[in-house]
């Protein structure tokens, strides 16, 4: 059963998520094709991070299913129902899904190079030599070749975030998740991280990016999804969702973001 053409890499069906009695995701459906970039927009608290974290099973979902690369993430089919996988199996799945966090989350007790090599050597049984080689190659690509032996605390935020991207890429993931990767950065440092992400997109990486960078979404995304209050309100090509939104909530959100951006530009 090999089907040619675009096969979806991510399929989310009717995803619900509750924290206690609060329903944060209220039935999310979407697919992401191989090599596509999806940008996830929405106001604070709309459930973007939660959705992203469900995709690599950092959060468990309460209903529905999420498939990545043809496998249910964190669950296996047992008869008609799904049962949770053993943590070691979940870890194997996560190894194929890279994630970049708003706060970088580099390991402060390890050097930049050790940050890159720890997972491939422990999870993929890559030799130390091989992992350092591919680490150097990735640092070079990120323009950070001189930083290999430094500790994360010695780097600027933009450099840390590029190390974090390199760290995720070390695992040769088939999918990359970004949760507001530039929100903790000073405006001057946003560009270098967005550039690295753009290059990654051009190389054909499948990406889901939660971001408030409208310009980035316009240029890079194949699909823009606008979420509010745990549901997908609007989705489509960037030029329609961002340029000509149909839903009132999308329009309101975009004009708020625009006002915000203008304010920031004025204050600079």
């Amino acid at each position: 059963m090999i089907d040619v053409g675009t096969r979806p890499n991510v399929i989310a069906k009717n995803v619900h998520k509750h924290f206690g009695h609060v329903e944060v995701l209220k039935g999310i459906d979407f697919t992401v094709n191989r090599g596509d970039v999806v940008c996830l927009l929405g106001p604070s608290g709309s459930g973007k991070s939660t959705l992203l974290r469900c995709i690599n099973h950092l959060e468990t979902i309460t209903e529905g299913s999420i498939e990545v690369g043809g496998e249910f993430v964190g669950y296996q089919r047992q008869g008609t129902s799904l049962s949770e996988l053993h943590p070691r199996r979940v870890a194997k799945q996560r190894a194929n899904i890279g994630m970049v966090f708003q706060q970088f989350n580099l390991f402060p007790h390890l050097t930049v190079m050790e940050n890159l090599t720890i997972a491939p050597t422990m999870v993929r049984d890559m030799s130390a030599k091989e992992s350092v080689e591919s680490g150097n190659a990735l640092l070079e690509r990120m323009g950070l070749s001189t930083k290999a032996q430094e500790y994360p605390g010695q780097l600027s935020g933009g450099q840390q975030q590029r190390v974090a991207i390199a760290r995720a890429l070390m695992m040769k993931p088939t999918l990359m998740l970004f949760d507001e990767p530039t929100s903790a950065l000073d405006p001057e440092l946003v560009g270098e991280v967005l550039t690295a992400m753009k290059e990654l997109a051009l190389e054909g990486m499948t990406m889901i990016v939660v971001t408030h960078e409208i310009q980035f979404a316009r240029e890079v995304a194949d699909t823009v999804i606008f979420m509010d209050d745990g549901v997908i309100v609007e989705r489509g090509e960037p030029k329609s969702v961002l340029g000509n939104p149909k839903e009132v909530r999308t329009q309101a959100f975009l004009s708020r973001v625009r006002v915000q951006m203008e304010k920031e530009q004025q204050s600079e």
Binding site: F107, I118, A168
Partner: peptide
């Protein structure tokens, strides 16, 4: 920090590896 554990998990480290190494 909680983010440390999440980062380790997202890289595919098992809970035991995360505890030991991170």
């Amino acid at each position: 920090a909680k983010g440390q554990v999440e980062a380790a998990h997202s890289l595919g480290l098992t809970p035991t590896q995360t505890t030991r190494k991170i």
